[in-house]
Lab assay of single mutants.
Amino acid sequence: TGYYDVLGVKPDASDNELKKAYRKMALKFHPDKNPDGAEQFKQISQAYEVLSDEKKRQIYDQ
């Protein structure tokens, strides 16, 4: 599964769309709200870390 799929956004998503999707998913799977969501929360955080950084995103998109 790709990072875009993890966040539920298209590859041409804007920074604002990425942030909005990340916040929505992070709230849904945060371990405090969803004890079984810890692994998914890590994936969401990693996806956002890469896609929100312009240089990392360019490398990922290659």
Rank of each mutant, 00 (worst) to 15 (best):
residue 32 D to Y: 08
residue 4 Y to M: 01
residue 44 I to K: 00
residue 5 D to Q: 12
residue 49 E to W: 13
residue 34 N to R: 05
residue 41 F to Q: 02
residue 15 D to V: 14
residue 1 T to M: 14
residue 16 N to G: 12
residue 53 D to R: 08
residue 19 K to Y: 15
residue 44 I to M: 00
residue 13 A to K: 00
residue 62 Q to C: 12
residue 33 K to A: 09
residue 33 K to I: 14
residue 58 Q to M: 12
residue 25 M to D: 03
residue 49 E to N: 09
residue 55 K to H: 11
residue 39 E to A: 09
residue 53 D to I: 05
residue 54 E to H: 15
residue 55 K to C: 13
residue 12 D to F: 07
residue 11 P to R: 11
residue 26 A to E: 07
residue 16 N to F: 13
residue 29 F to Y: 13
residue 34 N to Q: 07
residue 21 A to V: 05
residue 51 L to F: 02
residue 24 K to A: 12
residue 32 D to M: 11
residue 22 Y to C: 07
residue 36 D to S: 10
residue 3 Y to H: 03
residue 47 A to T: 00
residue 7 L to R: 00
residue 8 G to Y: 02
residue 62 Q to G: 08
residue 20 K to F: 10
residue 52 S to C: 12
residue 42 K to P: 06
residue 12 D to R: 03
residue 47 A to F: 04
residue 12 D to I: 05
residue 58 Q to T: 09
residue 37 G to S: 10
residue 13 A to V: 12
residue 39 E to P: 05
residue 8 G to K: 06
residue 9 V to T: 04
residue 51 L to Q: 01
residue 45 S to K: 15
residue 5 D to K: 11
residue 24 K to H: 10
residue 27 L to T: 08
residue 60 Y to K: 03
residue 20 K to C: 14
residue 34 N to T: 08
residue 59 I to M: 11
residue 27 L to E: 13
residue 25 M to K: 08
residue 50 V to M: 06
residue 56 K to E: 04
residue 58 Q to G: 07
residue 26 A to W: 15
residue 32 D to V: 07
residue 8 G to N: 05
residue 19 K to T: 11
residue 61 D to M: 06
residue 2 G to L: 13
residue 17 E to A: 07
residue 59 I to A: 13
residue 4 Y to A: 00
residue 30 H to D: 10
residue 5 D to Y: 11
residue 36 D to Y: 06
residue 38 A to I: 10
residue 4 Y to S: 02
residue 17 E to Y: 02
residue 2 G to K: 12
residue 36 D to K: 12
residue 62 Q to Y: 07
residue 31 P to N: 10
residue 10 K to P: 11
residue 39 E to S: 09
residue 45 S to N: 11
residue 54 E to T: 14
residue 2 G to M: 11
residue 50 V to R: 04
residue 18 L to E: 00
residue 1 T to H: 13
residue 14 S to I: 03
residue 11 P to I: 08
residue 7 L to C: 05
residue 40 Q to L: 14
residue 52 S to P: 02
residue 33 K to W: 11
residue 17 E to G: 03
residue 30 H to R: 09
residue 36 D to I: 07
residue 61 D to T: 05
residue 28 K to Y: 11
residue 36 D to L: 11
residue 30 H to G: 07
residue 54 E to S: 15
residue 46 Q to D: 11
residue 10 K to S: 12
residue 23 R to G: 07
residue 9 V to E: 00
residue 40 Q to W: 13
residue 30 H to M: 06
residue 6 V to A: 04
residue 32 D to L: 12
residue 52 S to A: 09
residue 22 Y to G: 00
residue 34 N to H: 08
residue 28 K to A: 10
residue 6 V to F: 04
residue 28 K to D: 05
residue 12 D to Y: 09
residue 22 Y to Q: 00
residue 53 D to Q: 07
residue 13 A to Y: 03
residue 41 F to K: 00
residue 46 Q to S: 06
residue 4 Y to G: 01
residue 55 K to Y: 13
residue 53 D to M: 06
residue 36 D to C: 11
residue 58 Q to L: 12
residue 47 A to L: 00
residue 28 K to V: 08
residue 40 Q to M: 15
residue 38 A to M: 09
residue 16 N to T: 13
residue 50 V to K: 05
residue 42 K to A: 11
residue 37 G to T: 11
residue 27 L to P: 02
residue 24 K to L: 13
residue 5 D to H: 10
residue 58 Q to V: 10
residue 32 D to S: 12
residue 51 L to T: 04
residue 19 K to E: 13
residue 22 Y to V: 00
residue 5 D to I: 07
residue 12 D to Q: 06
residue 59 I to Q: 13
residue 55 K to D: 05
residue 57 R to P: 03
residue 34 N to D: 09
residue 40 Q to I: 14
residue 18 L to G: 00
residue 4 Y to I: 00
residue 31 P to W: 05
residue 22 Y to K: 00
residue 1 T to Y: 15
residue 29 F to H: 05
residue 33 K to Y: 14
residue 33 K to D: 06
residue 42 K to V: 07
residue 21 A to C: 07
residue 24 K to M: 13
